[in-house]
Design a protein around this nucleic acid. Structure first.
Length: 233
DNA sequence: TGCCAGGCCCTCTTTAGGGCCTT
């Protein structure tokens, strides 16, 4: 069964190379397109959170002060992921934090990252914006919590990934759009898409509501609740 | 308060510049 882990970080800024650190990580583990496990934790990296980041995410310095050390959280996260390939929305961002924070924890980070922004740009050129929130609204995907919190964003990215995989099967006849195929698709030049997806690769069929119903990836699992580690009952 | 980076992508391009996307 194909496993994919969808990850999202909340951070103090946009660049770990400029000293920014992760403040929260969430990972949604899927198997065969269904959510089978979740991991979420705030983390204390010993840095202060800028006010505008608190305004954006709702994560405060007081919340971080009570959180476990970043190195311990990242080691747990790495154990949770194992060798499962990762997916993120704007994966370059999350991959940089994944590598930077795991390096601080002394843990290797060889995981390949597929990117739902790149996949969305290739599959849905008609969408006016490829921001996660815009795509969720466009496809009428469920929202499970406050945007810009790690677990809620990871859940939304998981729903978007399910939509992408559904459309690859239904519209393009891809029997198994696994992580390897997603990596190949996101690297594929737009002019070469028809070779990978067929002659109708860039032909969309109208508004999202006119398309066939897509089963949600979280339909069979319990909704998220506060805590450090989430497991479906 | 707004900027900080990095990779992708488009175009009035390719010897470049700027928008998008993430926090």
């Amino acid at each position: 069964m194909t496993r994919i882990a969808v990850i999202d970080f909340e951070t103090t800024g946009i660049s770990p190379s400029m000293g920014d650190r992760a403040t929260e990580v969430a990972i949604v583990l899927t198997e065969g397109g269904r959510v089978v496990d979740r991991f979420q934790s705030l983390m204390n990296a010993g840095v202060r959170i800028p006010a505008f980041i608190t305004q954006l995410t709702g994560i405060t310095n007081a919340m971080i002060a009570e959180a476990p050390p970043a190195e311990a959280v990242m080691a747990d996260a790495a154990r949770f992921v194992g060798d499962t390939p990762l997916v993120a929305h704007n994966a370059g961002f999350d991959q940089r934090y994944w590598r930077a924070e795991l390096a601080r924890a002394g843990v290797p980070a060889p995981h390949p990252f597929a990117c739902t922004v790149l996949l969305s740009r290739r599959l849905y050129p008609e969408v006016p914006s490829h921001k996660l929130g815009t795509l969720v609204d466009w496809f009428q995907l469920p929202r499970t919590g406050r945007a810009h919190r790690a677990l809620a964003d990871a859940e939304m990215a998981t729903e978007l990934l399910a939509r992408i995989q559904h459309d690859l099967r239904a519209r393009h006849g891809v029997a198994d759009p696994d992580h390897g195929f997603l990596m190949k698709l996101q690297r594929c030049a737009k002019k070469a898409l028809s070779k990978l997806l067929g002659p109708g690769a860039l032909v969309h069929n109208g508004s999202p509501s006119s398309q066939s119903a897509v089963p949600h990836s979280r339909d069979t699992v319990e909704p998220a609740s506060p805590g450090h580690r989430y497991r479906p009952l």
